[in-house]
């Protein structure tokens, strides 16, 4: 029990969390996604991560948008056009609205989470396309923790952590809502490494990502992300292992950075 408590406390305290001083409005990161087939890497899609300013009648929010589109030679084979969005507070990166609109090889799915922060709940809408082409819809009310975020907001929150204060082996966990299920994502700091990227040779923080009690992100330290060891903490390279193989995400360009 003592060890368990120590572990929980250490998870919370290793990485410090601060106000957003990393992500700016108008930032645009472009990546190439490659799939590893028997040791041969094949470029399959372009992934973009963009931020923009959204104004409502009462507040200004940051829109975090991630899109994925397969390259033209793969379109006739397996066409992917995915759109992930999270509308967050520009100061704390707390999400208020999340949307996931995916179209992968004819498979269509839409998810929307409306966060009710005070009630610690989420109004979820799920839409799927049936085989006959009609759409079915499911609405749900889900209870969540006070710090639960969606996948996109969590990815940006990782960049906002005070990684420079962490020691090698330190870990931090986050509650993530995905497919109406609350899961725990663990980020483990593995140290610094200098790698060559399309935006130059960069010293990077090497961080392992794992999903507790899930098969989606498999393996120990097999899903690794490299963030530049500067004030922008730009994700420049990622290696991931999924149940159907493994792949890489390499940066192509980075514009509109804050620092």
């Amino acid at each position: 029990m003592k060890h368990l408590l120590l572990f929980v406390i250490s998870l919370i305290s290793f990485f410090g969390y601060s106000q957003n001083n990393t992500i700016a409005f108008g930032e645009k990161l472009v990546f190439t996604a490659s799939y590893n087939m028997s040791g041969l890497l094949t470029d399959i899609a372009e992934v973009k991560m963009e931020t923009s300013k959204i104004s409502t009648s009462s507040s200004t929010l940051m829109r975090l948008k991630c899109t994925a589109a397969t390259y033209s030679n793969f379109d006739s084979f397996f066409k992917v056009r995915d759109l992930y969005e999270s509308y967050v507070s520009p100061k704390s990166l707390t999400p208020y609205l999340y949307k996931r609109d995916i179209n992968e090889g004819g498979y269509y799915k839409f998810m929307q989470y409306k966060y009710r922060r005070k009630a610690k709940s989420v109004e979820s809408i799920k839409k799927k396309r049936r085989s006959d082409g009609t759409i079915w819809e499911e609405k749900k009310q889900i209870s969540i923790g006070s710090n639960t975020k969606d996948l996109v907001a969590t990815l940006y929150t990782l960049r906002n952590l005070d990684i420079h204060k962490a020691n090698v082996g330190d870990a931090s966990s986050f509650k993530v809502l995905f497919d109406n299920q609350e899961s725990t994502v663990v980020f483990k700091y593995l140290g610094k490494e200098t790698i060559s990227t399309a935006i130059g040779r960069k010293e990077c923080y090497k961080i392992a990502i794992s999903l507790r009690d899930s098969d989606v992100l498999k393996g120990n330290n097999s899903n690794i992300i490299w963030l530049t060891a500067d004030a922008n903490k730009v994700p420049v390279f990622a290696k991931f292992k999924i149940p159907v193989g493994n792949g890489e995400l390499k940066i192509k360009s980075a514009t509109g950075l804050k620092n």
């Binding site: 959204i54 409502t56 009462s58 929010l61 509308y87 704390s92 609205l97 966060y115 009710r116 922060r117």
Partner: peptide, 8 residues
Amino acid sequence: LEDIEIDI
């Protein structure tokens, strides 16, 4: 978002 209570 107009329908959501936002506390920034």
